[in-house]
C-alpha cells in the first residue's frame, strides 16, 4: 500500500498571454519509508509539485491521496491533522528561518501552532530535536544569523521533524550549501530516514546527490515525468534519451576531462507557456522522428518515449 499516491496532478498558472503549464499530469506513488527523487532542470515543475504535495499550492487538476484520504482540496481545518504527517524542508537556509525568532522558537513553531504539548515540555522536545540533527541543544536561545548555512539547514530539518511526520518533501535541501557541508546534510538526512523510517520526496536538480539518497527516481521534463524507476535502473540503464543526456552532462571528477561518449543537448528548455506538441523533449532530442511531433508518448513501463533505449 502506498503512503502517497498522485494521479494526473496538474498546476497551471495564469500568465500574461496564456497559461504556464508548470505541472501537466503527474502520476506516481511513494510507499511508507521510501525515498523518491524528483529530478529535472529549472522549469520542469519539480518545485511546484513539492509545494502542491504539502498543500502550499492548490492543484488545478488531478488527485493527491495520502494514507487513502483524498487531500487534494481539503480545507484548512480538515487538513490540520494531516499537516502533521506531511512536512517540508526548503532550499534556502537563509530565507526559511524567521530572522527575528530564536532557534528554539523556530523549531517549536509546528508544536505551538498545533497546540501540542509534548511530555516533558516543548523546550525538552526542541532540545531533543536539535540534538537529533547534530546541533548543540544549548543553542536554543540563539538567532539564525549566528549560524552557518549548514547549521541553519539543520534547524530547518529539526523543524520539519517536530511533528514526527511520515513524509517529508525536501526541496533542493543541499543545493545552496558548500560542497563539504552538502555531504554532511545528505548523510544526516540518510541517517534520519533510516532511523525514523521516514518517507521522502527529494527534489533536486543534481542527479549525483539524488543517487546517494533515493531508492526510486522520477525524471521530469516540462511538467511531465519522462522516466521513473528504481535507482539502479535509472543510473545504470537509463531508457529515456533525456535521462541519458542529463547523466552525461554531469561533470565527473573520476573522468578528468575525458570526452568520449558524451551527449550534448543543444538549446535550452522550451518555455512551459508553449510546450512543443507531441513529445515535449523532441525539440532537443537526437532520436526524434515525425511521430514524436504528433503523438505524446504515454508513461508505460516507467518511460515515456516512442523510441526508448534497449527497446530495439
Amino acid at each position: 500500500m502506498s503512503l502517497l499516491a498522485v494521479e494526473g496532478l496538474t498546476k497551471h498558472f495564469p500568465a500574461r498571454g496564456g497559461v504556464v503549464r508548470a505541472v501537466d499530469g503527474l502520476d506516481f506513488t511513494v510507499r511508507a519509508g521510501e525515498t523518491l527523487g524528483l529530478v529535472g532542470e529549472s522549469g520542469c515543475g519539480k518545485t511546484t509539485t513539492g509545494r502542491m504535495l504539502v498543500r502550499l499550492l492548490e492543484p488545478t487538476g488531478g488527485r493527491i491521496v495520502f494514507e487513502d484520504r483524498d487531500i487534494t482540496h481539503l480545507g484548512g481545518r480538515a487538513m490540520r491533522p494531516l499537516r502533521q504527517e506531511l512536512q517540508i524542508i526548503f532550499q534556502d537556509p537563509y530565507a526559511s528561518l524567521n530572522p527575528r525568532h530564536t532557534v528554539g522558537r523556530i523549531v517549536a513553531m509546528p508544536l505551538t501552532v498545533n497546540g501540542i504539548r509534548p511530555p516533558g515540555g516543548v523546550k525538552k522536545r526542541v532540545q531533543e530535536l536539535l540534538e537529533l540533527v547534530g546541533l548543540n541543544p544549548e543553542h536554543y536561545n540563539r538567532y539564525p544569523h549566528e549560524f552557518s548555512g549548514g547549521q541553519r539547514q539543520r534547524v530547518g530539518i529539526a523543524r520539519a521533524l517536530a511533528l514526527r511526520p511520515k513524509l517529508i518533501v525536501a526541496d533542493e535541501p543541499v543545493s545552496a550549501l558548500d560542497v563539504s557541508i552538502q555531504a554532511q546534510v545528505i548523510n544526516l538526512l540518510r541517517q534520519l530516514q533510516r532511523d525514523l523510517g521516514l518517507a521522502f520526496v527529494f527534489i533536486a536538480h543534481d542527479l549525483a546527490v539524488v543517487r546517494h539518497f533515493c531508492q526510486r527516481v522520477a525524471v521530469m521534463y516540462l511538467g511531465r515525468i519522462v522516466e521513473i524507476g528504481e535507482r539502479d535502473e535509472i543510473y545504470e540503464r537509463p531508457r529515456h534519451p533525456y535521462t541519458r543526456a542529463l547523466l552525461s552532462a554531469i561533470p565527473n571528477v573520476a573522468k578528468l576531462g575525458e570526452s568520449e561518449g558524451r551527449i550534448r543537448l543543444s538549446g535550452d528548455v522550451p518555455t512551459p507557456m508553449n510546450p512543443p506538441s507531441g513529445c515535449r523533449f523532441r525539440t532537443r532530442c537526437w532520436k526524434a522522428q515525425d511521430v514524436c511531433a504528433t503523438e505524446e508518448p504515454p508513461l508505460t513501463g516507467g518511460v515515456a518515449c516512442h523510441f526508448p533505449e534497449g527497446a530495439s
Binding site: 547549521q151 558548500d178 555531504a183 554532511q184 545528505i186 548523510n187 543517487r211 571528477v253 573520476a254
Partner: peptide, 22 residues
C-alpha cells in the same frame, strides 16, 4: 573529493564529508 556525490561506486555508502564549517 570525498564530499562529492558521484555517479559511480557504492550509492548506499555514506559520503565522507569534512566535519565542521568553513
Amino acid at each position: 573529493l570525498g564530499s562529492v556525490p558521484s555517479l559511480h561506486g557504492d550509492a548506499d555508502a555514506d559520503l565522507m564529508p569534512i566535519r565542521g564549517n568553513p
